[in-house]
Design a protein around this nucleic acid. Structure first.
Lengths: 71, 71
DNA sequence: TTGTTATTACCGCTATAGCGGTAATTTCAC
DNA sequence: GTGAAATTACCGCTATAGCGGTAATAACAA
């Protein structure tokens, strides 16, 4: 499914942090349009921009695989 | 740090799957240059392209936060 | 209600990610 | 060693993500 809603998660965390989209955009060093796109789950967003937002919001990313890959 | 090396993970999984970069690119429906960029950890890559690669390689993404966010 | 703020949505413009092609380099099998 | 395959790296070109500005809508308070 991938059914996970990153946009909603970002939005929820932003609200909890008491930030507007514009404030979050400034903190992350990206444009407001991009924050909006992320919250709308537009996947055409640059990975670096998503990372910037997640950093501000203290959200961590983890990649998991079926393989015991722990390099 | 974010110290996690997604590029290496992709490369390792690609190898284990017995795919060349070009084959992976074709399977993911993206260009070979982009696969190369991902393995080189270029963060300027489109999120959708990373997702496409992860899907082919059966790698899952998880976002975690300090907050009990399970919406 | 009215006013204020935030969100959503659109618009051009610009910068650049993504693309295939190609070449250099590396890797690996023989 | 030689040669084939894969990887790395570069090159233009094109499509588009990202940008700020703005406007419309929504949300919420007084």
């Amino acid at each position: 499914m991938s059914g996970f809603d990153l946009g909603l998660m970002v939005k929820t965390h932003r609200k909890k942090a008491g930030l507007t989209q514009i404030e979050l955009a400034n903190l992350a060093g990206i444009g407001k349009t991009t924050v909006f796109d992320i919250e709308k789950n537009k996947e055409t967003v640059r990975w670096s921009n998503i990372l910037a937002v997640l950093k501000v919001l203290n959200i961590e990313v983890e990649f998991k695989s079926p393989l015991a890959e722990n390099v």
